[in-house]
Design a binder for these strands. Structure first.
Length: 597
DNA sequence: TGAAAGACCG
């Protein structure tokens, strides 16, 4: 079997890669003299260099280089042509790369497996993994042998198009039929796919498996799993993997620590975060832009905008430039506090720094105004962003739709929704959730059900959150049987209730005075390994109060405290009112002793 | 030989 075509050798051609390196060097601020052109280059090379200096980022320039290459004698090597393709890929001009490749084929320019792999990668980025497989067929037909990179690229393409199961099967077959010697990268592609499809535990198993197969996991493999565990709020498991890494002599890097810090931020474990930062310092790993952005986000979300501002100063002092994410995150923090003047100031600062707000930045701002019920300003911002040539995303429309529904501006919401469909915005599960919630919130449960069936027929698979919204809607409408049915059918749909849906059931039953059924839900949660949270207990306790079941409330309060939860504001005030009243129940008196010594 | 694939931020 041949391994590619022998390269045509040439010494006269200044490689595209070299050009690009020069190009980026000339663009970097540290370049001593951007106009300096070495004089030992040929006229043609200087021309190329000139081109690259003014900007090789227009695909036209690359095409001109390609035409020049075609006319050269001897013809540049397969490596040179491949480098041109790689350069186009680096600039994300995937479709141009594909057309250059097809031209190469029509001119019978030699190509090899690397050339093919690059083009397959382009197809995958263009969301046409099917073309990628057509190319794989061409590879076989021409007698080339796909290597592990070719397959990794295809697997990634499948996964990026939500075909993870196909990717997994293909990977298994590649191993089974010994088509590749798997490396850490291809394992990571699958591990990452499992993580992103919510199967972190399987990812962990694959991490173990690769080791058994003699492919030592590296820091990237660990980072992938650590990140996923952190996102699943299983930071302690992630910390366990960190310890394991050091046992195995695998050095953690800034990505490892950033993921862990992210996980700890979500749990507000500030002491542990400090310890991680100290650990990094000890290991001489400096926080990078991502790390700072994570910390800034955590502080901003927690309302600590002053600390967030300080962190931005700190990152600048440490040589990390704040980017659009940094500023957008800070803006989000201001919006959360309703400090819109400051949010708008950030927008101005960004522009002054030459960082232009994108659709997501506007969406954050629009979301902020919607959450504070300033719908008209939000709508105005939508117009502004469109005028600036930014295309609102499905998230932009969704947040506005949510605002309109909550403000009970139904007619506008309806028009807005139609408008959004006309613009060709593809609905996702989150938007559907917003629509269903909005309809239920306005007492339109029947419309919500119609919409629900419509979304199912469109191929959107409702998740537990969607069902929770509908169940909540039914309860709100007093339709207990419908709510109960929907809940009991969850298992038939292959879904497990989560703590939120259980809480909705408990709240619904309590509202209807069905305390026994509510309590049964609590038991069911424990059976299904879904631990009750503070909301669960508070809801049930308030239900007991309302139905004068003070003994039950007493027991539940003890149980809640034993789990480390506290009575929330509404439970406390309800208890306070009860104690003020004339009722003299022994259990009430006992509670009084407990709470008000 | 080279040139291609994998992890972290709104």
């Amino acid at each position: 079997m041949r391994h590619g075509t022998p390269a045509l050798t040439t010494t006269s051609f200044c490689s595209v890669n070299t050009l690009l390196r020069l190009h980026s060097l000339c663009q970097s601020p540290t370049c001593p003299n951007p106009n300096h052109i070495p004089n030992h280059l040929s006229e043609f090379q200087q021309l190329l260099l000139e081109k690259s200096r003014v900007g090789f980022d227009k695909p036209d320039d690359a095409l001109r280089v390609f035409d020049k290459m075609l006319r050269m004698k001897p013809l540049p090597s397969v490596v040179d042509f491949t480098q041109l393709l790689a350069a186009l890929v680096k600039m994300k001009h995937y479709s141009v790369a594909v057309s250059v490749f097809s031209k190469m084929c029509s001119f019978s320019i030699p190509v090899n497996i690397i050339t093919y792999s690059i083009v397959i990668n382009c197809c995958c980025h263009l969301k046409r993994v099917d073309y990628g497989f057509t190319l794989l067929a061409a590879i076989f037909k021409r007698g080339f042998v796909p290597d592990v990179v070719t397959y990794t690229t295809l697997l990634r393409g499948l996964i990026s198009q939500d075909k993870f199961l196909e990717a997994e099967l293909m990977f298994k077959n590649l191993l089974k039929y010994n088509q590749i010697q798997p490396d850490a990268a291809i394992f990571n592609t699958i591990i990452n796919g499992q993580c992103k499809t919510g199967n972190t535990s399987q990812a962990m198993m694959l991490l173990r498996y690769m080791e058994k197969k003699g492919c030592m996991p590296n820091v990237v493999n660990y980072n992938t799993v650590i990140d996923s565990l952190s996102k699943d709020r299983l930071v302690d498991d992630a910390l366990g993997l960190l310890a394991e890494m050091s046992d195995k002599g695998i050095q953690p890097d800034v990505v490892t620590y950033s993921s862990l810090i992210q996980g700890l931020c979500n749990l507000n474990r500030w002491d542990d975060i400090t310890q991680m930062l100290n650990d990094m310092d000890r290991h001489k790993i400096s926080p990078d832009k991502h790390t700072y952005n994570i910390l800034i986000d955590a502080h901003a979300r927690d309302g600590k905008v002053k600390d967030a501002e300080y962190l931005i100063e700190l990152m600048i002092r440490r040589g990390q430039n704040p980017d659009i994410v940094t500023y957008s995150t800070l803006m989000d923090g201001y919006c959360l506090r309703g400090e819109f003047d400051k949010a708008l100031l950030v927008l101005r600062i960004m522009r002054n720094k030459g960082i232009f707000p994108n659709a997501q930045t506007y969406t954050i701002l629009i979301n902020g105004y919607c959450k504070k019920m300033k719908l008209d300003t939000a709508i105005h911002l939508l117009e502004e962003m469109t005028l600036k040539g930014l295309t609102p995303t499905v998230e932009t429309y969704s947040t506005l739709l949510d605002g309109l529904f909550r403000a009970r501006r139904l007619k506008e919401a309806h028009n807005f929704y139609k408008n959004m469909l006309n613009k060709g915005v593809r609905l996702n599960i989150v938007t559907c959730g917003i629509l269903l919630y909005g309809l239920c919130w306005n007492g339109l449960v029947a419309e919500a059900m119609t919409m629900f069936h419509k979304m199912e027929s469109c191929g959107l698979v409702p998740d537990i959150h969607i069902y929770s919204i509908l169940i909540h809607g039914f309860f709100k409408d007093g339709k207990v049987d419908e709510a109960r049915n929907l809940f009991h059918n969850l298992r038939l749909k292959g879904l497990w209730p989560d703590v939120i849906s259980y809480n909705i059931m408990i709240q619904g039953f309590c509202k209807e005075g069905l305390l026994e059924e509510a309590y049964k839900i609590l038991l069911e949660m424990e059976e299904n390994n879904c631990l009750p949270d503070e909301v669960t207990y508070n809801t049930l306790i308030r239900g007991c109060f309302k139905n004068k079941m003070y003994d039950g409330a007493c027991v539940l309060i003890d149980e809640m405290c034993a789990h480390g939860f506290k009575a929330d504001a509404s439970t406390t005030s309800m208890l306070f009112d009860l104690l003020q009243s004339k009722e003299q129940d022994p259990a009430l008196l006992a509670m009084q002793k407990k709470f008000m010594p």
